[in-house]
Design a binder for these strands. Structure first.
Lengths: 195, 195
DNA sequence: CATTTTAAATACTGATTGGTATGTAACACA
DNA sequence: TGTGTTACATACCAATCAGTATTTAAAATG
């Protein structure tokens, strides 16, 4: 990687960490410069303003991360009830970077930025839509395998699953990670009923 | 109400509306003064700083509002599956002040402030705890009435329901209110399985 | 009526915000 | 080796931030 590309990447990854913990608006450019040791000139050379950096962060950091942990485990369905529960369990309990106190980076940004900025909303919508599509497709494959009842609506299930995830990430911020285990237990009951 | 109490109340209710739409940190005191026509002297006479006002807003505006729309409908259970679904339906579709784009004031504040301020976290935790207790108690009454299976764990259900609500409020910010109807459909399937 | 307390108005402060203007090394390419 | 482009570095700017200091009007109380 070239030195310039390295600088740009440093800005994006460190901004991601700061914004995850502090929120987008509460993370100032000066704060980013301080922790990256990059100068303001370099920052505004690579991004024309703060929002463009935020968008790049969504597309280049958050999207690939969510694809790896949320979408990939659902491709090639073996047993949707297990596939989906396991995906949820892993992302809630086995990703060390994600702390209950700080929630989920994507959920946080949807919450903070969707009502304020149309570009952010569109970028974040792509994330959730792709995740919902993956759940939907997994359920459809499960129906073909007769593991899921034929009257189950995959789109509805996808919406409900994503809502559950977003919600427990929100609750975890106030209650801590103990609620994750409770959620996973009851989530299993919900999923079982799809068979 | 005295003139002073009126001023204080005006600050709280207008701050609530602004913070609901803009977020707590993004709503400046000057912004509040501008829309209330209250002066800075009056503001800092009634509240020693911004955070104290925010806490008062949670306790005096948000808490009573959530009690009326989320807790009260669950007291005196008739049929938990219907009680809980109806509570959810009404709060999602029938409270005109709440717009999908802006989500739920309490969920927003939990998301934004829980990791940053311990006092906010405690105040907001009281809200969700009281709501969860109401759901739990409703389910318990339903078990006594043999409308809910005896092996259902009311605490788990309460956690799952609150997570679903928080999550769909988050999704609605990006997707609009159409996802509310989908969620309510699938939520009914979840609840039915408790019988 | 006199005095004290409550409630509010005005003007200010230092710190921080996103962003700009300008300058300058390092490097690619002719 | 000269020239233009890339990739920064530094200093600055107007606007906005939460909060303070000081003054003043209104209301309660003796």
């Amino acid at each position: 990687m070239s030195k310039a590309a390295n600088t740009r990447n440093m800005i994006l990854t460190k901004s991601f960490e700061l914004i995850y913990k502090q929120g987008y608006q509460a993370t100032s450019i000066d704060n980013i410069l301080e922790t990256t040791k990059v100068t303001k000139g370099a920052f505004f050379y690579h991004f024309k303003n703060k929002d463009e950096m935020g968008l790049a962060m969504i597309n280049e950091i958050i999207y690939p991360g969510m694809y790896a942990s949320l979408v990939k485990p659902l491709l090639d369905a073996k047993d949707p009830i297990n596939d989906i529960h396991e995906m949820m369990r892993v992302v809630l309990l086995k990703v060390p970077f994600l702390r209950a106190k700080y929630g989920c980076p994507a959920v946080n940004l949807i919450e903070e930025m969707s009502p304020l900025n149309e570009d952010f909303k569109k970028g974040l919508l792509k994330l959730t839509n792709h995740w919902q599509d993956a759940i939907k497709e997994n359920i459809n494959q499960g129906k073909a395998l007769k593991q899921i009842r034929q009257d189950v609506n995959p789109e509805y299930v996808a919406c409900f699953v994503v809502a559950g995830y977003s919600g427990i990430r929100n609750m975890g911020k106030a209650m801590g990670s103990s609620c994750y285990n409770i959620f996973l237990q009851e989530f299993k009951n919900y999923l079982k009923q799809l068979a």
